[in-house]
């Protein structure tokens, strides 16, 4: 194997290592200081919906029954695939049983491959 071929193989390996690394997005969700959301008195279910910004097609959605042991702030882990769009629109909705009590809409701009991408803390706004 010539040295040029060895360099190419190493480059290919590095590229594959880079592409093969897992990517994560962590949403840091907090409540509003003025009207704190106690679990489960004020809110007991959280729904997260993630859409592509361009096509507005949903790429992920999940609804969690909140555990009393976990109060705000909390961290929600998103696990994108290799085909997930780089810019995402997120909607987080807080329910007390079936009543919507808090919400937040925000964008995740350009999350990076192979890294743990942390968003800035997102505040859930109370819905009157």
């Amino acid at each position: 194997m010539l040295w040029r071929q060895k360099v190419f193989v190493l480059w290919l390996a590095a590229l594959l290592v880079h592409c093969g690394s897992d990517s994560y997005i962590i949403l840091q969700i907090d409540d509003n200081d003025k009207t704190p959301l106690a679990i489960p008195q004020n809110v007991n279910t959280l729904t997260v919906s993630i859409k592509e910004v361009e096509s507005l097609s949903e790429v992920g959605a999940e609804s969690f029954v909140l555990s009393e042991e976990k109060q705000f702030p909390m961290e929600i882990l998103l696990q994108p695939s290799t085909t997930t769009s780089k810019v995402l629109q997120v909607a987080v909705l807080g329910f007390l049983n079936t009543k919507l009590v808090a919400r937040s809409n925000f964008q995740i701009p350009n999350w990076e491959d192979g890294k743990i991408n942390r968003t800035k803390p997102v505040i859930l706004e109370n819905v009157p």
Partner: peptide
Amino acid sequence: IYFLQSYQQGLPEHDYAVRLQ
């Protein structure tokens, strides 16, 4: 080393998780 480390790294700490398409 990089490969083995990234393989053993596992998921970062979190409260809830959503898998995306």
